[in-house]
Design a protein around this nucleic acid. Structure first.
Lengths: 329, 329
DNA sequence: CTACGTGACGCAAACGGTTGCCGCAAGGAA
DNA sequence: TTCCTTGCGGCAACCGTTTGCGTCACGTAG
């Protein structure tokens, strides 16, 4: 099969332990021996067996990432950021897509447990009590979700939401719709509260719709509800819903922008490519991912003696062409 | 720390081997013992250490997936399909995003080697000779890429391309542009050949542009080139380029559809959400992913005595609103 | 010249399971 | 009753590395 430490030991006339040290703990052997070992290992095409290595050392050079849905364009940039950061620190990423199916998470996390050095969990939907179970599987970091006693990177919706509502009022909108996300979504609770507060603060009347799943189709469905109501602007739980909404409104001959303003949340890569381009609240997913990796690796090193970190990231409004002054009636 | 086999052995008064069998090879122990062991294991919260398990058994219950760019919306559906299929067979997926950086692939693959039961590689860009090196790391399956002596799932562009050109001629187009993908891309070579043949067969004049990277920005840049030429329709290497193209054309006041027809390739989820909705050649990525998993797992079981599988999948044209009859001049 | 410190390396025990082989006891057949 | 079969479970080796500790030789100081 493949070349093992023992093979190299034989080839060099050294013991496996020396070879092991020469390769991974350079200071403990004579420089001459070290170089000789390394050269031979190289020549023989030696690749350390990570599995065996993990077994003794406990290190895996792997970090686990749990996301609800890779196909939702909000997540790939996060995943990419996590990968990039992990890769920079010599780790690989083990991904589990739980398919918006929260009940899988604990199961998946348990299985991953011994295989990874730490877990990054993006899980807007899982109920709190389940998350507590997860939290015991430290080191673990939650993204966009606050869990008591656990580290997390949370994204503060209120500022972006405030900007969004302010933007709409500046355009003359007085009745604004909000399309709720999934019922049990932590993010939705945050966003819902944020929009309520912002509207109250600006004297804007808020009309809520939903809940909706974060998918195009749900937005399509939402469009007709919105159209039948008398709101002049809509803020959607996320870009997916906003995009579906716009597609359907376009189809029905309603001009997004002139006839009705639409704001998404996430600022996913598609916002700029939709028609019209979608005004959206930028959520710093990539940054959150990168920070999460940093934290989880710190946690892994520190072996639990650090206190639970909570990093807050801010959102902000990106204005594009899906929002315009309210149409005169 | 956590509960090990030995703990359960102690608790049950059995030996570790019996416990092991009771848990993973049910037929070899007395049903009564088996149930007792399982119950106790359950109660004690035993979770097998996958790492240790892999070391002896050689099985990892992990399959590796190498993709060029998660952020390209063509890939998430493939990843999802791979995950789903793998998950159905009790495997988890280890993803490596090589960031359109082919030179990383072999390195990443080597590191993964011992950790996974098989490798699925989606790698349109890597040069052939490197791929040969990869191919030795069997079990391995290439998606959308033919490698001699190795299993692969390839996607035959010619049929879809034929339909696309036929569609355009039916709409009266006689001068058609093709936006080339990256220079060293295997897919692009396939597509380029396919479009040349199809145009020749239909007596359509073909004007080639590019190469372009498979990214929005490249499409934006392409737009001005296309606009300055006299083609009445364009087929882009992929949807990313097509979408960037459309965005820029829109911006310049050129109406995609009425003024110029655009066809993408991949039929990524965004095609239906762009404006106008994008006519695109559907590439069965999900199916390819699923098939690849099946094959790689077969390969892993069969330990090399099967001959290299090559599965061919067909493409077909999905007509939407970015293609219209040629405008009268 | 002896004693002791130190650097370089080897020994062997883990890590937590899996698995081939063997022994033992119970049951069935002769 | 005796012998053989069969089922069940234990023993121990092994997977490939890491790592604590011991050994050995050499150099230096007393």
């Amino acid at each position: 099969m493949s070349v093992t430490l023992a093979d190299i030991a034989r080839a060099t006339g050294l013991s496996a332990s020396t070879v092991s040290r020469a390769l991974s703990d350079p200071d403990k052997v004579n420089p001459r021996t070290r170089d000789r070992v390394r050269k031979i290992a190289q020549d023989m095409g030696y690749v350390p067996n990570q599995v065996a290595r993990s077994l003794t050392s406990g290190r895996n050079d792997l970090i686990g990432l749990i996301v609800p849905d890779i196909a939702n364009p909000f997540f790939p940039p996060i995943i990419k950021a996590v990968q990039a950061r992990a890769s920079a620190k010599g780790k690989t990423v083990l991904i589990a897509d739980v398919d918006e199916h929260p009940s899988d998470e604990i199961q998946r996390a348990r299985v991953m447990r011994k295989r990874v050095d730490g877990l990054v969990v993006v899980s807007p939907r899982t109920p709190d009590d389940r998350l507590d179970q997860l939290a015991e599987l430290s080191p673990i970091v939650f993204v966009n979700r606050e869990v008591k006693g656990a580290a997390s990177v949370i994204i503060e919706d209120s500022e972006g939401m405030r900007e969004a509502v302010e933007h709409l009022t500046a355009l003359g909108h007085r009745r604004v719709g909000y399309l709720n996300g999934p019922r049990r979504s932590w993010s939705n609770t945050q966003r819902q509260n944020a929009v309520r507060e912002a509207c109250a603060a600006h004297g804007v009347e808020l009309v809520e719709f939903g809940p909706f799943e974060p998918q195009i189709q749900a937005g399509v469905r939402a469009a007709d509800l919105v159209h039948a109501s008398d709101v002049t602007a809509v803020i959607a739980y996320d870009d997916m819903i906003a995009l579906g909404l716009m597609a359907r409104l376009n189809e029905r001959g309603v001009r997004v922008g002139p006839d009705i303003s639409v704001i998404g949340i996430d600022d996913s890569p598609m916002s700029g490519m939709a028609y019209p381009t979608l005004t959206s609240i930028h959520v710093p997913g990539s940054e959150a991912g990168a920070r999460a990796v940093d934290i989880v690796l710190d946690l892994a090193d520190a072996a639990g003696d650090t206190e639970p970190f909570v990093v807050q990231l801010e959102t902000r409004l990106i204005v594009r062409s899906s929002t315009s002054p309210v149409r005169e009636r």
